[in-house]
Amino acid sequence: MALQDKYKELTDAATASGVTNLQVREQDGVLYIDGDAPGGAAKDRLWDIYNKIDPDFRAGDLVMNINVTGLIEGTKLKVVTQSSNLNIRKGPGTDQPIVGKAAHNEIVTLVSKSSDQWWLVRTDAGEEGYSYAQYLTPA
């Protein structure tokens, strides 16, 4: 219960910001918060609260698995790498061969979400493959 109290501001904010399928479970000294956020901004806010409660994420007592929902096939995504090109790979994994590149700030189309980490995308040039979801945000 102590962990749920520690992160109460976070779970309250998750409920308030419309996170669905919210699950808060404590197991072996770690709190697990799972849920689907209605948008990237809501997810970002929750992470800022997490960082405020546990500065630099040092405590190792929370695993927060919040994913953004509502991204359906055909959604336009912007490449948000720091400056470099985004690799488009044959399969979901960095061990997979690179089949294409998308430039920084380029808009690509979501084909499907293979996992929470790897999304199948298509560029306007017609290249199709898997890219790391962290570098893609709804355009």
Binding site: D28, W47, N51, D56, F57, G60, V63, N65, A133, Q134
Partner: peptide, 26 residues
């Protein structure tokens, strides 16, 4: 880099780990 920590943690937290022991020097 401090600016990268949140991004890295966001992506590691989706992998369903038991816990994350962050000993990184910022």
């Amino acid at each position: 880099k401090k600016a990268d920590l949140k991004t890295l943690m966001m992506s590691l937290n989706t992998l369903k780990p038991k816990k994350i022991d962050n000993q990184l020097v910022i």
